[in-house]
Amino acid sequence: MAATHNHAHGAAENSNNRRLLAAFAITALFMVVEVAGGLFTGSLALLADAGHMLTDAAALLMALLAVRFAQRKPNSSHTFGYLRLTTLAAFINALALLVITLLIVWEAVRRFYQPHPIAGWPMLIIGVGGLAANLLSFWMLHGGEGEKNINLRAAALHVLGDLLGSVGAIVAAGVIVFTGWLYIDPILSCLVSCLVLRSGWRLLQESLHELLEGTPSQIDIEKLKRDMCLNIPEVRNIHHVHVWQVGERPVMTLHAQVIPPYDHDALLHQIQHYLLDHYQISHATVQMEYQQCPEDDCGITVDTAEPAHAHAHAHAHAHHPH
């Protein structure tokens, strides 16, 4: 079972690499096309969109490097490996996305007061090409395992911003070509920015929550404590529960006050499998004890030395299959 899980996880990571690499190549290539088109036609709008795609290409490259680093094995200085790099990359990408969106809104407001002439037909042609390129990139990043990986979702949001921007550019170019009304460009830019801002803010909150060791949203600690006591007769009390997430994997430590077991290892394995089956927690450190701890917080916030006798009770480490 563990070998099958490892094989599936490795295949998913390789798929993520391929998706990110392909999306990066498409974005970088079309960015060059937009720069050339902007210089040839003298269109500031195309050059500005090329700058946006440059930022997206950098974000995709950062995400690709993060996935590659996350595949490195744990060592004595990084015992969880580099899985947290994917979350850090998602956080940085979300910040960049919010900054880009605010800059777009600022430029849109400025253009209400100082409209710029825009070459409509070149803008329309390149906008259609940009839409096709972004649709392909977004499909690569959003499908399959990309929906579960926070780092790929961050990269997909960058591409989504460009995709919506391409739609706005096509509509704006059409209006400009047929009516000459230049104000459509900043109006659509603001509408697209509001959509991207909402998604970017949600991603920023989620990645920051994970970086701050927040409890994964799918785990209700109080319910977990109640259910374990009800479903495992030997367990009297669950306390000092700490749950956080490293990359895509939830990690847990807990103290279990138990009835002295006839088979210590069997009870430990029962607790371990319960966490795996009901909460998908495959890495848990379980401290089994016959009396409940007198402390309320495991000494995490206490700056004094812990007495040596504090650990003079049964301790066990749950096996964590990978």
Rank of each mutant, 00 (worst) to 15 (best):
M1L: 11
M1E: 14
A3M: 10
N6Q: 14
N6A: 13
H7N: 14
H7P: 01
S15V: 04
L21W: 09
F24P: 01
M31D: 03
M31W: 02
M31Y: 06
V32C: 12
A36K: 08
G38P: 05
L39W: 15
T41N: 02
L44K: 11
A48H: 08
H52E: 12
D56L: 10
A58N: 06
A63M: 01
A66S: 09
V67R: 06
R68Q: 11
R72S: 09
S77G: 04
H78I: 01
H78K: 11
G81W: 04
Y82D: 00
L83D: 06
T86I: 02
T87Q: 05
L88M: 13
L88D: 07
F91C: 12
I92P: 07
L98A: 15
I104K: 00
R110Q: 15
R111N: 07
Y113A: 15
P122K: 05
I125F: 14
V128R: 01
G146T: 06
K148Y: 09
H158K: 01
D162Y: 04
D162T: 01
L164H: 07
L164D: 10
G165E: 15
S166Q: 06
V167S: 02
V167Q: 07
G168H: 02
G168L: 03
A173D: 04
A173K: 00
G174I: 14
I176N: 00
I176F: 09
I184G: 08
D185A: 03
I187R: 06
I187K: 05
L191T: 02
S193D: 02
C194Y: 13
L197R: 00
G200Q: 03
S207M: 02
P216I: 08
S217M: 05
I221D: 01
E222A: 14
L224E: 02
R226E: 15
R226K: 13
R226N: 14
L230V: 09
N231Y: 14
N231S: 14
I232K: 07
E234N: 10
V235L: 09
R236Y: 07
V241T: 14
H242Y: 05
H242L: 05
V243R: 04
Q245G: 04
V246G: 04
V251D: 00
L254W: 08
L254P: 00
Q257M: 08
I259Y: 12
I259S: 10
H264N: 11
H264C: 10
L267V: 02
L268Q: 14
I271L: 15
I271F: 04
A284K: 04
V286L: 13
Q291S: 09
Q292N: 13
Q292K: 12
Q292I: 12
P294V: 08
P294L: 10
E295N: 11
G299D: 06
G299L: 09
T301S: 12
V302M: 11
A305N: 07
A305Y: 13
P307H: 15
A308Y: 14
H309D: 11
H311C: 09
H311W: 12
A312D: 12
A314H: 14
A316I: 00
H317T: 10
A318M: 02
P321K: 12
